[in-house]
């Protein structure tokens, strides 16, 4: 009886560890696979001979691919929308969340609901597109930023957080004659840094990963994001071939085994798109977890 249970225990643990090891590898391997292909000989990589470890390591791809026409521009657009978008979203959500804790505000609960309802309702993508056109938001960089500035979910997060801060602090500042803006920037902002950091991380990741807005709104290649350019490279092999032909002259005579191929460009651009996420992920993982937990409490 006793030995039987212990045997069962053993079996259970083996299966359990086995499953999690397998699934973790399944999550990790694709990233590793992309990476080893970007640093291996382009010739071998294009023939599918790089599967488990890198072969004939070189780092030319990263230098050459960034020189491709339009790629640096796309990186600039992606980086720009991430930085500007995140700063504005954090500032706006924090300020609006703070204002909504003020019971004195005119018709406060109406305006609060006015903001929150948009989380559950949208007019549909084509009506949205029509209005974006009317607002002059096609081929306009601000189309990446402005619609994301006020995010109801972040407003809820800040409001709940500010409500948990004791009023005494604010009241004493009010007594000294400080206005709302001074109180917000000098007292509230430093207190809500944990939640502001969480919002910043979420908003930065969603700006960086955003893709479909470019599909709808942008035809000007100067405003393409990295995600969109990557999608184009994956799907339009003819335009990719033209880029490869053009790039040969520009970068001069390179070792023939490392000249750019469709595979090398695709994997390298993918890696460039993933790298910022991989880079911030270990540092901010706990913020992600915190974010989903707060969200769960508030539902």
């Amino acid at each position: 009886m006793h030995t039987q249970r212990r045997l069962g225990d053993w079996l259970f643990h083996i299966c359990n560890y086995g499953f999690f090891t397998l699934f973790t590898l399944l999550c990790l391997f694709p990233f590793y696979y992309l990476f080893i292909n970007t640093i291996s000989s382009n010739d071998l990589s294009a023939r599918g001979l790089v599967t488990l470890y890198p072969k004939m390591i070189h780092f030319d791809n990263y230098i050459q691919v960034l020189q491709l026409k339009g790629l640096a521009q796309a990186a600039l657009v992606s980086g720009g929308r991430t930085i500007i978008g995140t700063l504005l979203t954090v500032a706006a959500s924090a300020f609006l969340g703070y204002l909504f804790t003020k019971h004195k505000m005119w018709a406060r609960s109406f305006w609060y609901r006015f903001v929150i309802i948009t989380m559950y309702f949208n007019a549909g993508i084509i009506p949205w597109y029509i209005i974006m056109m009317k607002l002059n938001m096609t081929n306009n960089f601000w189309a990446y930023i402005l619609p994301a500035v006020v995010s109801p979910f972040y407003v809820i997060l800040v409001k709940t957080f500010v409500e948990s801060i004791p009023d005494v602090l604010e009241e004493s500042a009010e007594m000294d004659g400080a206005g709302y803006i001074v109180i917000f920037s000098k007292i509230i902002m430093p207190l809500i840094t944990p939640i502001a950091a969480t919002i910043a991380i979420f908003s930065a990741v969603s700006q960086w990963n955003s893709f479909i807005d470019t599909v709808f709104l942008m035809t000007n290649s100067k405003l393409f994001t990295l995600q969109f350019v990557l999608y184009k490279y994956l799907n339009e092999s003819t335009s990719l071939a033209a880029i490869i032909r053009n790039s040969q002259g520009a970068v001069g005579n390179i070792d023939l085994t490392n000249k750019q191929t469709a595979t090398s460009i695709r994997t390298t651009v993918s890696m460039i798109v993933i790298l910022p996420i991989l880079f911030v992920y270990p540092f901010f993982q706990r913020y992600f977890v915190k974010g989903i937990m707060i969200g769960a409490v508030k539902g």
Binding site: F23, Y33, V205, W208, N209, L234, R266, Y281, F288
Partner: peptide, 18 residues
């Protein structure tokens, strides 16, 4: 295992493609 959640669908497609 939470890492894949933070990459875009374009990247998932790129991974699938490769």
């Amino acid at each position: 295992t939470t890492l894949p959640n933070f990459i875009s669908w374009v990247l998932v497609y790129s991974i699938a493609f490769m």
